[in-house]
Amino acid sequence: MPYIAAVFCVIMVAAAPFAIRKNWSGTDEEQFDYMTLLVPATEGVKRGVNRSMSVILVAAAVMCACALVALIPGKLGAEIPDSVLKPVVFGSLGIMLPTAFVIVPSIVLFNRPKFLVPPAYRKQLGLCQVWVRRMFR
């Protein structure tokens, strides 16, 4: 089973830069709709997830790279000292938790911070802005 996870991590780390570049250029907004097909959501939520896909992919690639650091040496018979493993685990958690619970919801709901939103999507409104405009029409 660890080998399957390692193969997935290698593919993710290798493919993420290409997907991030395509999302950041904004040429193909529908490219990431397949990632939101399984989630029953409104069009506004799907647009928000597409806006935050670059951040999600970066965080996933960092997590996968950290998983590789933890998986590969153990399977090769090498001993990983705690002085190396603990910073890797806490570093990946330190990247993943704020991304999952602060940055991505901020992009979906408010379309902020602008420097993390791809330039092609910066003029779109966040979900909260859309809801407020609908309420006060």
Results as ranks from 00 to 15, higher is better:
2 P>D: 10
2 P>K: 12
2 P>F: 12
3 Y>A: 13
3 Y>L: 09
4 I>S: 11
5 A>K: 04
5 A>P: 01
6 A>C: 04
6 A>L: 06
9 C>R: 00
12 M>N: 11
14 A>S: 07
15 A>N: 04
15 A>C: 12
20 I>L: 11
20 I>F: 10
27 T>E: 12
27 T>F: 12
29 E>D: 12
30 E>Q: 13
31 Q>Y: 14
31 Q>R: 06
31 Q>K: 11
33 D>L: 11
34 Y>F: 15
36 T>F: 07
36 T>L: 06
39 V>H: 03
43 E>L: 01
45 V>N: 02
54 S>L: 00
56 I>G: 02
62 V>R: 00
63 M>Y: 08
65 A>H: 06
65 A>Y: 15
67 A>L: 15
72 I>Q: 04
79 E>M: 14
80 I>R: 08
82 D>C: 00
83 S>T: 12
84 V>N: 11
85 L>M: 12
87 P>T: 08
87 P>Q: 02
90 F>P: 01
92 S>P: 05
99 T>C: 04
100 A>Q: 08
107 I>E: 09
107 I>W: 09
109 L>A: 10
110 F>M: 02
110 F>V: 01
111 N>A: 04
117 V>T: 10
117 V>L: 02
119 P>K: 07
122 R>C: 06
122 R>E: 12
127 L>I: 14
129 Q>D: 13
131 W>D: 12
131 W>Y: 12
132 V>K: 13
132 V>I: 14
137 R>S: 05
